[in-house]
Design a protein around this nucleic acid. Structure first.
Lengths: 227, 227
DNA sequence: AAGTCGTGACATACTAGTATCTCTGTGTGG
DNA sequence: CCACACAGAGATACTAGTATGTCACGACTT
């Protein structure tokens, strides 16, 4: 979940609408380009239009909705430029994290990475992309902690979330798990060995694979992208 | 300006309120911790409370306002953690941009950088921090274009904006211009020479100076920071 | 005298209804 | 047959008023 800058002690109608739509969009229950109307959603939730409007506004700020004033509101299509930006941030931040992690790596780091990789192997054998994805997050969290920049994990999570909706469209994500796991193993090995530049180099290859996946999705479903 | 995900062809009341408050907050006409009320702002702009509410919501999403439901709304204080995140992103992205710029540098790059530096020198002699700041932006834009990642400039701009409000509090920003200019000259020289790692190393020193400034502000005005 | 409870002022959350803008489709004039 | 104008449908933008939650202050109780 993204961090909205508000206290969350109480749960308002806006929150309910927002959270429901947020996950519906990210789970592709609502597809890019789908038109939605304030009145329709309001009726569905049994509230007036205003809270729906507020929720729409928040979703638009997160880049999930496109509000066309006095015309219509639709689920935002993917923007190749936004994706490129997101990918560049992630590459930059992960390179920096990996570099620092390699410089600070200890025996404990190696142990934590190896334990995570063992679980990743199990997930691949079980063919569970969901499990694998969670362990992938944890893998990066270990690197962030080793690099002593825990907050960087929030950044990586946010950027990952930006493309997660896109990746849900991928046809063959299960097939790619073995090579991703292999990358992780190599990165862990270099980091544990304190070889910063080597680890970064593999990290770049690792992220480039995702670029290929994204290109494949673009060719498969051009309608889901902005012109 | 941050990119709100909405078409901007028409200018609504919400836009007017939003933009006015946005610059008031960034120019420190409204200070961190200041309480503001929907009704008050609505009266001031001669509109009803709803557009003000929408504008508040957008500002809260950008991290400039803290909405405490059914209690109060105030200008958000600075968060040391958020600042650290912002700084880390900028350091990571700029390192990557600088590295690629050095690899792609041509004679035209050198010419563009030198021209920019000549103007920066004039700005420093004139003691104009505002002019210097604008040229600083342009300097980074040249690097992004050389690195062939123009979109990275949007990222850097966004991160810079995140701390610009904070830097407005700095007491001695004019005094620091000469050393910042000196950094820029060294970075330009290394980039033009194609020395990627050398340029990145100076870039790190350059950004670290800003960290020192931020620490000084924190000691000077602790009330403007979150606990 | 100290603690607790109630009340009132004031903040945001929400509802309902009106105004205004944009697109679309149709009919008419050239 | 094509182009333009106009009207209607439907969407969001805005207004005004009501509901509800929070805090502070003062009176009452112990």
């Amino acid at each position: 979940m993204p961090a909205a800058a508000r206290t969350k002690e109480r749960k308002t109608s806006v929150d309910v609408v927002f959270e429901t739509l947020y996950s519906a969009i990210n789970n592709l229950e609502m597809l890019p380009g789908d038109k939605i109307s304030e009145a329709e959603i309001a009726a569905q939730f049994g509230v007036s239009r205003q809270p729906v409007r507020d929720a729409f506004s928040r979703l638009a700020n997160l880049g999930l909705l496109l509000i066309q004033p006095q015309k219509a509101t639709e689920v935002k299509r993917f923007s190749r430029r936004e994706i490129a930006k997101s990918r560049f941030v992630r590459m930059s931040v992960e390179s920096e994290v990996t570099r620092r992690a390699a410089q600070n790596a200890t025996a404990a780091t190696k142990a934590a990475l190896d334990a995570n990789l063992a679980q990743q192997t199990l997930a691949v054998e079980a063919g569970s992309y969901e499990k694998f994805g969670k362990l992938d997050y944890a893998f990066h969290n270990i690197l962030c902690k080793t690099a002593k920049v825990d907050f960087a994990f929030e950044l990586i999570s946010a950027e990952k979330a930006n493309v997660d909706r896109l990746c849900m469209l991928s046809l063959s994500k299960e097939d790619r798990m073995p090579e991703l796991l292999d990358d992780h193993k190599k990165i862990a090995e270099r980091v544990s060995a304190g070889d910063a530049e080597g680890a970064v180099a593999i990290g770049r290859i690792h992220l480039a694979r995702l670029d290929a996946t994204i290109d494949a999705i673009f060719k498969d479903k051009p309608d889901y992208f902005e012109p």
